[in-house]
Design a protein around this nucleic acid. Sequence first.
DNA 1: CGACGGCATACTGTCTACAGAACACAGACC
DNA 2: GGTCTGTGTTCTGTAGACAGTATGCCGTCG
Lengths: 251, 251
Amino acid sequence: MNSDKGADVDRRIAAPPTMSVLAAEALRSMILSGELLPGDRLPENSLTAQLGVSRSPLREAMSVLEQEGLIVQAPRRGAIVAPLTAHDIYEIYTLREQLEELAIRLGVPVAEEARLDRLREAFARLEAATGDDQTEHTRLAFEFHLALVGLAGHRRLEESFRSLSLQMQLCMAMNRRARAGLETMKEDAARHRPLLDLALAGDRDGLLVALRNHGQRTFLLYAEEHVDGHSPESRAWFAEVRAQLEGSEAS
Amino acid sequence: MNSDKGADVDRRIAAPPTMSVLAAEALRSMILSGELLPGDRLPENSLTAQLGVSRSPLREAMSVLEQEGLIVQAPRRGAIVAPLTAHDIYEIYTLREQLEELAIRLGVPVAEEARLDRLREAFARLEAATGDDQTEHTRLAFEFHLALVGLAGHRRLEESFRSLSLQMQLCMAMNRRARAGLETMKEDAARHRPLLDLALAGDRDGLLVALRNHGQRTFLLYAEEHVDGHSPESRAWFAEVRAQLEGSEAS
DNA sequence: CGACGGCATACTGTCTACAGAACACAGACC
DNA sequence: GGTCTGTGTTCTGTAGACAGTATGCCGTCG
C-alpha cells in the first residue's frame, strides 16, 4: 500500500507541468541553442510577452536557470545570460571532470542493474540521432555522460554534474556558429561506445582511463580564443592542456 | 574609470538587502538552529505571517533554500525541510570531502595572498567565539572550511561546497539536542589551527593528510543511529567508516 | 567641446486577488 | 466495522497592479 510521506511517491502518470517548468524549458533551450548569447539582457516584460506567461512563473524559471549557472542576476538590475570568461571554462571543466571521476569510482561496478538500462537507452538515443540539429546532438551526448555519472546513484553528485554540463553546452553554443561541424555525429556516437562497453563490463579503471582521453580538449583551445578574462589559474591550466594536446599529437 | 558592464561592479557600499534575501536568511537560521526539523511542512501562509513578508519574496527565498538543499519542494504540494536519510549523509559527506580535496590540490600553495587573509580572519573569528551558542559556533567552523576551499579561487567549487556544508549543518541541527556539548569550543578551535598553519606554509600534501583525519567521523556514527533510509552504497560506506574508526582507536 | 545635473523611461521588487489542485473529514454504503 | 465517496477547507500556482530604483537622454554650464 506504499503509504509514502507524500514527498516522493513514484508517480505512474506525469504530473501536469507547471508554467514555471515550461518557461524554464523554453528559456533554457533559447539559451543553449545560441538564440540568446552570453551577456544578453533578459528583461522580464519582453520575455513574458514572448513566452506567454506571467511574471511570477517567469521569475521562478529564471531562478532555476540561475541555479543551473546559465544566467546571472544582479539585484535591481535584472538578469543576463551568464557571460563566460576563460576562468569560467577552467572552473567548469576541472570540476566536471573531477565529479565524473568520483562518480565512476563510487558507481562502477554498478550496484543496480536498472541504472545500466538508463545508460543503454541514452546511448541508443545518441546513436539514433540522425538529424543535423547540432544542439540536439550535443544535448544527447551530454545526456549519455549524465547517465554515466548516474551509475553512482548519487543524487547530489549527478545534480552538480548536470549543472556544469549545461554550462558547458552554453559555452559550446557560444562558439557554435564558428566551429560548425567540427565532427560528424556518427563519429561522436562511435567515440562513446567504448565508454558504454566498459561500464557494462564493470571495468572501473578502464573507464577512468578512457574518460581521461575522451574530453574534447581541442574544443577547449578553440574556445579559449573566443573569450577573455583569464585568471592566473586558468592561464596555467590552459597552457597545460595545450601542452598535453601537442604531446599526444606528436606521438 | 573601471567601466564595468554593470553585472559585477565591486561595490564599496553594500546594496540594500531585498526582502527575499532577508527572508532567506531568516528561514535558513530557523532551519539550521533546529527550530524547524527535517520533514516539517513550510506552508507559505503561516510563514508570510511569521516573517512579515509577502508570498513573492518568500517563494524566492524558498527557491534559494531549495538550491542549497535545505528544503525540498513538490509541485502543488508545498515545501518541507529536507528529510535526511543515511544515504543523504553518505552523499553529502563523500562529495564534500572530495570537493575539499580538489580545492586544496588546485589552490595550495596559494596564488594570491589576499585569499589567505580571509582564512586568517575566519580562524580568528572561530577562536574568538566565546559564547555557548552551539549553532553559531558550528557555523564559524564551517566558515573556516569554506575559506579553506576558497583558497582555490574556484567559485563553482566553493558554491557547491557551501551548499553541502549547509546540509551538513542541517544534519547536525537535527541531532543537536541529543549530542549537546560533544566537544568544547576551545578544543574545536585548536583542532583547526594546524590546518591554518599548513595552508599558510603552502604545504599541500600535509594539508591533504591533515584533512583526511580532521573529519568528525564520530559524529557520523552517531548520526547514523538517528536516521533511516539506507541504500546499498551508504550501508557499505558507513561500515567502512566504522571500521576505520575502530582501527584508529585500537592503535 | 566636454562634463555635469535633471528628467523621463524602463525595469525590477513587492503586494494582493483569484482560480484550481491537494487534502481532511464526515457521511453513506457494503 | 471498514471502505469508499462526496464535500468543504487549505494551500499552491498564476495573474495583474503599484511603488521604488536604475538607466539613458537631453539640455545646460563651464
